[in-house]
């Protein structure tokens, strides 16, 4: 308490004499509030106000490109239009296709590579560093250079595939059938290292004595994996899955650089269609409702994520 008073006194001493007596009369609690109020005000202005403003706009017919137009309260009509639209349904299915396949591939490849690295072969440290590089790159940069790699005539990807199967020039980005797989391949390439890291953390936390006991019981490698490794790393795997699921649900930058949602609307994920509705069609009220739907979905998934995180912590 004495220290706190000294602190108040110190501030008062460095304040002009005519207002110093006011500072001396300030309680610790008020002083604390005085210090944190700018941060709270900034947080309210940057995070909370836009959120509530978006929720308000979602119930109106507001268009940002027509500022003079009278804004009408239209109730839940924007929500009804979105949730009855087969186009939006299609974009969410494209998102689901992307999310499910990336999660599946990343877990399969990530877990396999993590087990390989965990076996501590001679150059495992070097390969761990090499494998982690894609995760450190910016998604926009990754999108741009994979566009070059996917070029049908000159790109490395098409040439490598043709070494094994003679299919001619592969137009990964321009083909309706292949474009969804192109974005899945790139995301898997970029984010598998994250799964590897989490799986490695899980694998290194398994006590060696469990494997020794299993060996005494003459368990084979498969049994050790199913009954020891998998249950022990499951919380880490769940965490990785949830995190990647939420991140991929919001995926925007990399896909915009790679395909811009094309060809047609084959790779138009939810976030890309939201951006189009907001800044190309200028349907601000409608896109606000769309944003609220995506926000609530991600918030809901985030709640489960936090629960899983607490489970891992405990």
């Amino acid at each position: 308490m004495k220290n706190d008073n000294n602190f108040v006194e110190k501030i008062a001493n460095n304040t002009p004499v005519n207002i110093a007596h006011k500072i001396r009369g300030v309680s610790d609690k008020t002083l604390a509030w005085l210090f944190i109020s700018p941060t709270i005000f900034l947080l309210l202005a940057i995070n909370i106000f836009p959120l509530f403003w978006t929720i308000y706009l979602s119930f109106t017919n507001y268009r940002a490109n027509r500022p003079g137009r009278i804004v009408h309260w239209i109730g839940t009509r924007n929500y009804e239009r979105i949730l009855g639209s087969s186009d939006i349904w299609g974009y969410l299915q494209a998102t689901a296709h992307f999310v499910v396949w990336t999660m599946l591939l990343q877990v399969l490849i990530g877990l396999t590579l993590a087990m390989l690295i965990n076996s501590n072969f001679k150059t495992s440290n070097f390969w761990t560093t090499v494998i982690l590089i894609p995760m450190m790159l910016s998604p926009a940069v990754v999108g741009v250079f994979w566009t070059y790699l996917f070029q049908p005539q000159t790109g490395i990807f098409s040439n490598i595939i043709n070494l094994f199967v003679d299919v001619g020039p592969l137009n990964m980005i321009g083909s309706v059938k292949l474009a969804p797989w192109a974005i899945i391949i790139v995301d898997t390439w970029m984010w598998t290292p994250y799964i590897i890291l989490l799986c490695l953390a899980g694998l290194r936390s398994v006590p060696q004595s469990l494997y020794e006991a299993a060996e005494v019981d003459r368990a084979n490698a498969f049994q050790k994996f199913i009954y020891i490794t998998l249950p022990k790393i499951m919380p880490f795997l769940m965490l990785a899955l949830l995190f990647r699921g939420i991140e991929n649900f919001k995926m925007f930058d990399m896909v915009v650089e790679l395909t811009s949602g094309g060809p047609g609307s084959t790779t138009e994920l939810a976030s890309i269609s939201l951006k189009r509705a907001a800044f190309e069609l200028w349907k601000t009220g409608y896109s606000s409702a769309y944003a609220v739907i995506l926000f609530v979905t991600i918030f809901g998934l985030g709640s489960i994520y936090v629960k899983a995180l607490n489970k891992v912590k405990s």
Binding site: A96, V99, T297, G300, L301, S303, I304
Partner: peptide, 9 residues
Amino acid sequence: IGLGVFMLM
């Protein structure tokens, strides 16, 4: 929440 996300997609 999980059921809702499944229904959405």
